[in-house]
Amino acid sequence: RAAQGRAYGNLGNTYYLLGNFGKAVKSHQERLEIAKEFGDKSAERRACSNLGNACVFLGEFAMAAEYYKRTLHLARLLKDKAIEAQACYSLGNTYTLLQDYEKAIEYHLKHLLIAQELADRIGEGRACWSLGNAYTALGNHEQAVHFAERHFDISKEIGDRS
C-alpha cells in the first residue's frame, strides 16, 4: 500500500509534466487518500501542493485555493517555513486569478513576511512585484508605487535586469 502511494504520486507528476492535468488530479487524489491512511503528513502536504498546481492549469481556481489552504495548514503543522511561504505565494496568485485582490494582498503580505524572516531576497522581490500589481488592480496607487519601488530596489540588488 505504501509503494502504491508513491507510485500514484509519481504517476500524478508524470501526467502533470505531460500536460494531462485531469489524470494528474486523479492520481494525486489517490496519493492523498493513501497518505491519510498512513498518517503521513509530508506526503499529504505534497499531494495537496501537486493537486493545487494541477487545478490551476485546469482553470479550477477555487478548488486550487482549497488545496493550497490545506497545504498551508500542513506546512504550519510540519513547521516548514519555506513551504509555508510557497503556499502563501500560490494562494496570492490564485486569488489574483479569481480577481479577489483583497485576499491576494492578504496572502502576498504573509509571503513577504516569511521571505523577510528567511532572508529570501528573490522571494521578497516577487512578493513586492505581486503586491504592486494587486494594489494597482484595486486602484490604490500609493501602495502600488511603494511596492514597485521596493521591487525595483531588490531587483537592482540581486542583479535581475528583466
Partner: peptide, 26 residues
C-alpha cells in the same frame, strides 16, 4: 483597462511558467 489587466497579470504569468515545471517528487 485592457493595459491595466495585462499589467495586473504579469507576475501571475511568471508564477505559472515556474509552476508548470514544478512536480514535487516522492
Amino acid at each position: 483597462v485592457q493595459r491595466m489587466h495585462l499589467i495586473q497579470v504579469d507576475s501571475v504569468q511568471r508564477w505559472m511558467e515556474d509552476l508548470r515545471l514544478m512536480a514535487e517528487c516522492e
